[in-house]
Amino acid sequence: MKRARIVRIILVVLISFIIFGPLSSLVIWSVAEKWYWPHLLPQQVGLFYWGKVFQGRMMQALQVGVLIACVVTVLSLIMTVPLGYVLARFRVPFKAAVLLIFLLPQAFPQLPVFANATVYLYRANLGGKVPGVILIHMVGALVYAVWTMTAVFKSIPASLEEAAINLGASRIRTFWNISLPLAMPGIIASALLIFLYSLDEFTGTLLVGSPFVLTLPVFMYNASQGYELPVASITALLLMVPGIILLLVLERYLKAEYLSSFGRI
């Protein structure tokens, strides 16, 4: 027992270094106004770049990104809450095929597929526009949402619904009065994760949106490649904020079931 405690302390120190080491260099870079090697820390520290970042194109990228993420989240929920219910409850035909199609994007590399999807979107006159970026985000979001919604509705005992139907409620009424309220925690959890996915999406946004539609990840990439390291680091920190909030909120709910629903029919 004592040895376990020593091992635990060593583990925590080591893991803290591994986890926070790279993240701490973001914080240091974000306030570095002058930093030349071989100094361990910047010679001049200040919030100059923070002020600069909030006046520039970053704010615009932030607004566009949040707008896209909101639309993606709402649309995904509207589409997948009923679908998840149907897939979880009814013995519909082609169920395996439907689930398989929603499994594909999880199993294959995105970039080469999205590159060809970009061709379709430009043909439809949606390339380089916000609706096009929304659509490309929807692909990944839907895949995640369908699987989690199906899992959420499967976890509700069918007997609870049968009790309502038994008392004369219609299927749709039962869905509204029984299933939906019971599924709410799961729906909220996956809504937050969809929002986060869209906000952080890089590959599709770069292919479909660039250079006309700029979201934070793409903005950050541009800043980083242009060696504006303080600007990139500040953007990186901002990009982490929603994720960290979500981690703190969802910590208790974040069990493996949600994620391991991927990859298993």
Binding site: L196, L199, F202, S233, A236, M240, G243, I244, L247
Partner: peptide
């Protein structure tokens, strides 16, 4: 601690 990277976007990991 090990859950933290799950919520750090890929691009941020790359940059960091």
């Amino acid at each position: 601690l090990f859950k933290i990277p799950l919520f750090v976007p890929f691009v941020v990991v790359g940059h960091a």
